[in-house]
Design a protein around this nucleic acid. Structure first.
Lengths: 150, 150
DNA sequence: CCGTATCCAACTAGATACTG
DNA sequence: CAGTATCTAGTTGGATACGG
């Protein structure tokens, strides 16, 4: 990580020329920030990941999905989520003209490829969760309200 | 989850028994969905990724960050974003007691490890962007408003 | 059973002005 | 330069009721 060791000597202004060491992430279109936003817009919402994770295990019906998702997702949110995923070609929706109607959802190949990404996210999260928790409580302590004799 | 497979007997539809094939994602705590949400809550907001990407190249000052980010981020948003990242131990903030004040931001080791994840997201996004664009326009066409002779 | 529509609460983000 | 405070607008998410 670059030798830049925050000069502790009263340096009035450190050499700004130290920056830019390793271009870990190289973007062809900086304005677009590689398009990471595309994925994040897809996964960033509150429910998409749950649906993808559940669907990663196999075909599911609407109600099955709703009951499989931890927090109680409303039909509205589930509908919106699967529609978005369907629109982007991540999920395939199959309607059986029966009575009562039956609809099945499953991941497409594209959706399955996303699964690996989600796995990576989960691995990172699990691996560094303790570190984050520690940093967080440390920060909270340091920035505790100086209101009273706290 | 449990094996609860809602009685399929009355269903005249397809073989629902096909489901559940490969457990691509295995969670220890299903209620928490592996904790992917942790990462997403961090990266899901509109600006965090930009900051991480920029900081991946080296140390940056507040103003440098603000100018490096494509869309015009407000001071407020940049402040909130770096604060959050700092709180989670992803970013290190160094203040130089000079006049005028100077503050530098840099990724911590934890932050750098996140960089790889962002890289993976970017790669996936770039690789599948065409497929998504295609699926999306196809969906839009199929679901076009039947209002008029469009 | 599956999905849509409407209304409403909460949060996020932007603009602006002001302080150390 | 760096950061905070305030106020406002846009978006997301949830509850409920209703339609196919």
């Amino acid at each position: 990580m670059s030798a830049g060791h925050t000069a502790v000597t009263t340096t009035p202004a450190p050499d700004a020329t130290v920056a830019a060491a390793e271009p870990v992430i190289v973007c062809e279109t900086p304005q677009d920030e590689c398009g990471v936003r595309d994925v994040l817009d897809r996964l960033g919402d509150k429910w998409s990941v749950y649906v993808v994770v559940e669907l990663a295990s196999g075909v599911r019906r609407f109600k099955e999905l709703q009951r499989a998702i931890p927090a109680n997702i409303s039909q509205r949110m589930l509908t919106l989520t699967v529609r978005r995923l369907e629109r982007d070609g991540l999920v395939k929706r199959t309607v059986y003209p029966t009575v009562p109607p039956q609809v099945e959802y499953e991941l497409t190949d594209l959706g399955h490829s996303l699964t690996h990404l989600v796995k990576a996210l989960a691995d990172w999260s699990i691996a560094h969760r303790p570190a984050i928790a520690t940093a967080r409580s440390a920060w909270d302590t340091a920035h505790a309200e100086p209101t009273a004799g706290n």
